[in-house]
Write a protein that binds this DNA or RNA. Structure first.
Lengths: 174, 174
DNA sequence: GATAAATATCTTAGCAACTAAGATGATTAG
DNA sequence: CTAATCATCTTAGTTGCTAAGATATTTATC
């Protein structure tokens, strides 16, 4: 399972390890949403709100890929449960800003404590330089995924014959 | 945005960077499922099948957290679309093994090519030693998430009063 | 080897959340 | 002032889920 690996083997292991932990992370998030009694989409919107702060309904639709109709439902549920507030923009009264009700949102936050503690513990075993490398990697990775998303759009527009010519990288199916 | 950061700041940036790229990765997967014309759950099952090979319906339910009834639907759809085959186990005829139809599954695989290429490109900019560090981190991270999932179960069983005593780590809400 | 319990999957009814289409209300351009 | 556009909400219809229980098979007990 280890010792002097070739670079290819290394990359393959890295891919699998990342996929595994990412999948497990998703499961964690689902479990939290479950505990909080809200759906996955609702949770995703809470995440976005926590990252971006005050956001319009339309932007939520854009970021999540849901229709505006679906977002109305999401916000209805979250508002009824007390996690967010609707605030009409006074200067453009078509817009509805959604903002987090911090005190209530903390209740959800508690469920993330075990995860945060696990991460702190994990990171404590790395030096500053190592953490800087990891940060660089995470940032580069984000750019890479964005790039891939762009490239995916190109594949979508390919006629199937041309798509058939795409070669999967060796060794790893999918 | 950079220069001589404190360790805390570093960790916080790391957390955000990882969360962002992981979220984007999830979006990519959703886009692929969409292209293939199958649902998220269907896709998750295909992932599992690709990793584990031949798997019973019951195990799919176990791993995905869906009910066995839901899995029946998943497999029905995937089978109708030609991605998988049902195979009754001859030695225990209650069991139904699900197996991937490789040729058909490759069509989905094509959609992952942009992602794989982006990752190869990303990794090419790192030395073997750096990749080894990343691998170690990914593996440790997986263990950490598993641990956190265990700890979450403990929070679930806490009465709300006790839950209120949990302190969120400083600086970062959620 | 007959009966009971357990196991694995499938079926059904009901429900939650989504999409597509269009209605409503507010703003901007000509 | 009118038309076009924009942001959100409403509605009807669809999809995929759960909970409960039906069916078929295997294992355990007497």
């Amino acid at each position: 399972m280890s010792s002097a690996k070739s670079r290819d083997a290394l990359m393959q292991q890295l891919e699998e390890a990342m996929r595994r932990s990412s999948a497990q992370g998703v499961m964690y998030g689902q479990a939290v949403a479950n505990m909080a009694g809200i759906s996955n989409s609702d949770m995703e919107c809470m995440d976005i709100l926590n990252l971006e702060g005050r956001v319009t309904a339309g932007r939520l639709a854009e970021v999540t890929g849901l229709t505006t109709g679906a977002i109305t439902g999401v916000v209805d549920r979250l508002e009824k449960a007390g996690y967010v507030r609707r605030e009409r923009d006074e200067s453009d009264r078509r817009k509805v800003f959604i903002s987090v009700v911090e005190e209530k949102a903390m209740e959800i936050g508690k469920f993330y404590v075990p995860m945060q503690e696990a991460m702190l513990k994990l990171w404590s075993r790395y030096t500053d330089d190592e953490l800087r490398l990891l940060l660089r990697f995470a940032n580069d990775g984000y750019k890479g995924v964005l790039q891939a998303t762009e490239a995916l759009k190109a594949v979508i527009e390919m006629p199937p014959e041309q798509r058939a010519d795409l070669k999967l990288p060796p060794k790893s199916r999918r």
